[in-house]
Design a protein around this nucleic acid. Sequence first.
DNA 1: TAAAAACAGTGATACAGATCACATTGTTGA
DNA 2: TCAACAATGTGATCTGTATCACTGTTTTTA
Lengths: 229, 229
Amino acid sequence: MKQLEKTNCETCQFKSCAVEVLDPAELFILQNNCSAIVFQRNEKIFREGNPHTGVAYVKSGLVKVHKTGPARDQILKVVKPPRFIGLPTVLGNKLNQYAVTALETTHVCFISSDSFRKLIMLNGKFANEIINNLCQDELSFFDRSINQSQKHINGRVADALLFMANEIFGNDSFLMPLNRNDLGDFVHARRESVTRTLSRFRKDGLISLNGKNLRLLNKAMLEKISRNG
Amino acid sequence: MKQLEKTNCETCQFKSCAVEVLDPAELFILQNNCSAIVFQRNEKIFREGNPHTGVAYVKSGLVKVHKTGPARDQILKVVKPPRFIGLPTVLGNKLNQYAVTALETTHVCFISSDSFRKLIMLNGKFANEIINNLCQDELSFFDRSINQSQKHINGRVADALLFMANEIFGNDSFLMPLNRNDLGDFVHARRESVTRTLSRFRKDGLISLNGKNLRLLNKAMLEKISRNG
DNA sequence: TAAAAACAGTGATACAGATCACATTGTTGA
DNA sequence: TCAACAATGTGATCTGTATCACTGTTTTTA
């Protein structure tokens, strides 16, 4: 974790849709209440239970959002930039309700919650973009919840692989950013079951697998498995 | 389902926090793009896959939000008024992504999505309230997801009973608004398992149970079961 | 670079809940 | 008010995945 020199929000190459609609005066507010920080793999961006540090805007990299449950940690989502993270906690002005951890080198801007709220109040378009974000999250969370609870482990692991390939990497070949244990926490299963499922997929020629190195060989079949559980 | 005569938003006794912050001109917009409808038990307020009918403001009654999964229906939440429902779908201008059904006689105001969006753009405080709502939803959905996937059926059913008593009815004695099948869809279990769990709770003196008539007799113990799964 | 710690694979076993099949009770409307 | 259907309860059985125990491998760090 390393603080960077002040960045220029106006010329920032990672501007969010929400920030695009701000006028110069509003950008000035943002500019002066925003600090850029770099996190390395496995460094925590939010720590569960700690006082919040502002809204986080993830500019580059990859992060996991996770939370301690009664039995174990659970990965709620894996988030690719550009994306705001931590609105619920920050806006409620509470302690962090969940943890966020970098899965690779990740650039983040922290925006003080006061100024974030000020922007919402000042600029309806900005608020509208934030609302769109939250709504989108809600819908995908509904889907995820249903899929996780109604599919068998084959379907859940297939989902996770397709998600990584399609949503995160945009490539059928990728380096799995989660270890087997985390992958278990992501698909509501245990490490051993994930291992067995991946081995089965490899044996059936659906994927090639070498440690974290993954390639989807038969997406049609994986999608079918995803549908049928 | 029955359309009522035009209501007066300004003097409405069920005004939401969000609507409280509107000025007269904005209330006038709302007034003219808002229709009040009553639904009886089991009538659908939103039908999954249908074109949306605007944001729904639930003024009184009780509703379930549910969605078809690969294997069965799933109840995502049970919502008590006052509450906006259906923002994600409406704002995305898509088909309804989930269904909403009345569990008892329920009064709803439908607000056209255009005017709802206009209010967000015009009034930062309104937008802010909506954002607070969405954030709160997200946090409770995270909790629910973790509880549902990590607890055994005893803990999940205990959670549901405590939720009904504490959040919905504010009373340890209530008429369960969900039948055994729905209760199963709510706690990610099957009808038979719910029945068995409730019987066990009754035998152990934790609840009294007579059809839909429920009374929590030992909340301390139910909370303990909820914690330990 | 050796020792320790984290990560990954695999077989044997246990068990929570699903599923099935059927009996009983409650509800509805012709 | 009786037939038809929906909802509920209950025992017997099946099964997917967790758990346990152990081995092998990779990564970290002292």
